[in-house]
Design a protein around this nucleic acid. Structure first.
Length: 262
DNA sequence: TATCGACGTCGTCAATATGC
DNA sequence: GCATATTGACGACGTCGATA
């Protein structure tokens, strides 16, 4: 599904108002830094707790928004702005790489397509969009940092991480199987031992967490595949539309030439 | 047959988002 | 603020086709 305005769950109550049928209804709401040639407002009705909308937003081209179920399409002239009446909506767009925009929680938030609409000259380094994009970028993992530093596997994190706490010590341990926090105590001879119930509890908690994350990762991958499949479907639909439009243009041209010669 | 590279899948870690 | 969910990144492993 390329470009999706998604609320939780599924639904078909999405109301996509065509800008061509009700022009200029909210054009004045756009922020001054956005040059608006067209606005599409997506109204998600309250009785439909959720709705899926697909969209393909392309640089300097007309873009398309479709609902998932009814294949109701809206052509967005280039330089468009999308208004979404529900907060916390997300739009995915494609431009070589996948991009994600999260709409600000205010109702009627205005979000222009990223990197392609006429407002995005790329010269404004301090623009909110740019800042938000940077926020989305994750920093490298500690593992990667360690690898970059040429550090081998850390078997035990020494001294500084040990803290005494009511007779128990906490020790961070990592190895090929991953990391763990282990609590232990010392007896009168200074020998280490791990109190049974604590160890069992920690082991159980860790196993539960791993199990949950394992299943979450599976689900996440399933969703990702589904999403990619949807994107591919959208590509197919748009290619067909494009083909049809080219054919239409061709026949209209022929008709025009015919009438001209008569 | 052994080896190698490409590719897919899985489990895990860790950063971040989200809900309460 | 904390617990939980989500997801990108990474490494391990298995499979498959190409090649020596």
């Amino acid at each position: 599904m390329d470009g999706m305005v998604e609320e939780n769950g599924t639904g078909s109550g999405t109301n996509v108002s065509d800008p061509l049928s009700s022009p200029g209804s909210s054009a004045n709401t756009a922020p001054p830094h956005v040059v608006v040639t067209s606005i599409v407002q997506l109204t998600l009705p309250a009785q439909a707790p959720s709705a899926q909308v697909q969209s393909v937003i392309q640089p300097n081209q007309q873009s398309v928004i479709q609902t998932a179920s009814n294949i109701q399409s809206v052509q967005l002239p280039k330089g468009n702005v999308i208004l979404v009446s529900k907060p916390n909506s997300v739009i995915h767009t494609t431009q070589g790489t996948l991009q994600t925009l999260q709409i600000k929680p205010e109702p009627n938030s205005v979000v222009s397509t990223q990197g392609q609409s006429s407002d995005d000259s790329g010269s404004d380094d301090e623009s909110p969009k740019r800042k938000y994009r940077e926020m989305l970028t994750r920093r490298p993992s500690y593992r990667k940092i360690l690898n970059d530093l040429g550090g081998a596997e850390i078997a035990v994190i020494p001294a500084g991480t040990i803290q005494t706490d009511s007779g128990l010590h906490t020790l961070a341990v990592s190895g090929t199987g991953g990391g763990a926090i282990v609590q232990y105590a010392t007896n009168q001879d200074g020998q280490f031992y791990v109190p049974g119930p604590i160890l069992e509890d920690q082991t159980r908690k860790r196993e539960l967490r791993l199990l949950k994350n394992r299943e979450a990762a599976r689900e996440c991958r399933r969703k990702k595949k589904e999403y990619i499949k949807c994107l591919e479907n959208r590509v197919a639909v748009l290619e067909n539309q494009n083909k049809a439009l080219i054919e239409e243009l061709k026949s209209l041209k022929e008709l025009y030439c015919q009438q001209k010669t008569e």
